[in-house]
Design a binder for these strands. Structure first.
Lengths: 363, 363
DNA sequence: CCCCCAACTGTATGCGCTTACATTCCGTCG
DNA sequence: CGACGGAATGTAAGCGCATACAGTTGGGGG
């Protein structure tokens, strides 16, 4: 099964390879009768053009890359059963059993948007999710295969980024600009959290909301906290005087914080969480403990993940357009490819505050 | 910013291009001192090898492809805001508002598994999600860029599949073999449904379960129904005598079926659904209508999606290892690449029956 | 009936890298 | 001390396609 090449098609159709190439790239430049003859040969021979050859000759691959670090590092050991295995296991699945994998919705959505936008503009998409070990190799590999790549901010060492950016344009997703010249796309973290906080202050007359922070090195969380502080300041409240709970964006850790809060017996009127997962962690504990949300305590999140729409009560949150983030990243790259010398792009996408029962009370 | 090539590196390091290539591909073949000199030049020049050139020369791209049809065709019109837009919209999000996007978990999971397995074996992954219009172009494009591709069964016309399979190996995901010679990977639909049904018959002494079918042309649903029938047959029950509800795998349609059932006032003791979405649709209607699950009617699903774990009551279902499906698909392709002449692979992955409150009663 | 131009088509080159084969090194053994 | 052989490196030939440029064809105008 030797794959057919332009030469095979050309010979079969009785034309030169240039004509075959034209039929595929610029059909209008070829006489209709010739074109049809060539296409018939393409069909007959099962010809599929080699992207490698085309990429080499045309000096562009027509592929955009997307790299994310892996959040949940799944076990690497498990081998996929390769042969037939039609066994069925029956499991009594108790709630909260270890079978739960926190779905990395964020990545899924960004990927979806990226994929869509790339193809829409005639580009294919290559994805890489960095495994714990060495993203370096992977990023470098991808860089050699694409015309440009988008990378989650902070997920790749600066020097590596420098290195690959000498070959192709790089777009950073979701981080703030840090004195670099890369193109950036992110969402309005600050404004979103500010709007949400302001709503709590004004509509619900909360005066001492407690912020539940994410990891200290998260730029996203920092921006969100800034919005929180600004809203308070605008209302004449000094945020630095208020306590802050330090979480790590995980649901598990948030549950611990919730337990501690209950143990201490000092529930604030409102918990403003840096992301949805943590907010859900609080709900996990409050429900069974008899703490009513939002009557006893208001809980809000940030992200707008699916689980927050399915929880009881449903979670008030700030929804960020994750798919659009991916799309914007691709757009930025395409723009950069067309205008290599334009100034660095900074794209900020709008967010949406979703008021639901965890803050508004039962409908 | 002209990208560096082997020639540049060779010149800078004072060696031939062959040596540069060796340093990158087979470091052991090069003397340590030379190697270091070359690597230093690579670093200095910001050299990233071109995958196009390598692919051409080595006759393999090192990329595996994955193609899925798009289930939810998002609107194509929306343009992503490209400039800064830090506006924040505040929305009172009432339950079941149109904001719901049915998450295509299935694809996400398969993709995740595929990505993982591909990179694990030194291959990159290229993804394509067919937009409504012409998957043909997309599949052909991908086929030209990869060493092999996996495709969701039934998502690509047979003749197209034939065409591209003359160039690269193709693996079909999730469909039954249909007299073709492609490699197939799928899950134990029949066995899983059989085990679940048997459980209902034996443990709960159900005698007349009603099957809720998916689209008539769904091979997966056909296999599941077969398992249902077999379990009944084993218990001496003739399935053909029982009514079957015809759904279409969607939650919406299932809700209609549920309404009809209530209107007719003839609830069966158990509803065995062909997938989770439909089962959830029944729950959506039963809850508010005062029909108790599982006391009045048992409802089961198939797939094991996240939403079924978050519903009230939680859904008894058959969980299929979606990520493993992706992994198995990649494995099959890699195996095929190594042994082009081996007989067609048929890989069936085991499933797991998850007993939860929608069939087992409150814990 | 011939010339000229536009529309097509063919020729030839090179994209950047891998790799078979040739050549050069250099330590070893006789 | 010289021949020998494996290790290291260099040479050169493509891989399959795009494309600049040259050549050919077919009419239409003069």
């Amino acid at each position: 099964m030797k794959a057919a090449t332009v030469y095979d098609v050309a010979a079969h159709a009785g034309v030169s390879i240039a004509t075959v190439s034209r039929v595929l790239r610029r059909p209008a430049d070829v006489r209709a009768s010739t074109r049809e003859r060539v296409l018939a040969s393409v069909q007959f021979l099962g010809y599929v053009p080699s992207a490698s050859a085309r990429g080499l000759a045309a000096r562009r691959t027509g592929v955009l890359g997307l790299f994310f670090p892996s959040i949940d590092d799944e076990d690497d050991s498990t081998e996929v059963p390769f042969v037939q295995d039609t066994s069925v296991r029956i499991v009594v699945d108790i709630p909260d059993s270890g079978e739960v994998r926190p779905p990395n919705l964020y990545f899924d959505e960004v990927l979806r948007g990226s994929e869509r936008e790339a193809w829409r503009h005639g580009f294919a998409l290559m994805v890489g999710v960095g495994r714990g070990t060495n993203p370096a190799e992977m990023v470098n590999d991808i860089a050699g295969r694409v015309d440009g790549m988008a990378v989650l901010a902070r997920s790749v060492p600066d020097d590596l980024l420098d290195h690959v950016s000498r070959r192709i344009p790089v777009v950073l997703i979701a981080g703030p600009r840090r004195g670099d010249d890369y193109d950036h796309v992110s969402v309005s973290n600050t404004e979103g959290m500010q709007a949400l906080t302001e709503h709590l202050l004004v509509t619900h007359r909360i005066t001492e909301p407690v912020y539940v922070a994410g990891p200290a090195d998260s730029p996203d969380d920092a921006e969100r906290y800034a919005g929180f502080v600004q809203a308070l300041a605008a209302a004449g409240i000094d945020a630095t005087a208020l306590p802050v709970l330090r979480g790590d964006f995980s649901r598990i850790r948030a549950r611990d914080l919730a337990e501690e809060l209950l143990a201490a017996g000092s529930l604030p009127r409102a918990l403003v969480c840096g992301n949805d997962q943590m907010a859900l962690g609080f709900l996990d504990v409050f429900g069974p403990a008899g703490v009513r949300v939002p009557e006893d305590v208001i809980v809000t999140g940030f992200d707008g993940i699916e689980a927050g729409r399915l929880s009881t009560p449903r979670l008030t949150t700030v929804h960020q357009p994750m798919a659009d983030l991916g799309r914007a990243a691709m757009r930025a790259m395409l723009s950069r490819l067309q205008h290599p010398d334009q100034p660095p792009i900074t794209s900020r996408l709008p967010v949406k505050v979703l008021l639901r029962e965890s803050s508004e009370g039962p409908v």
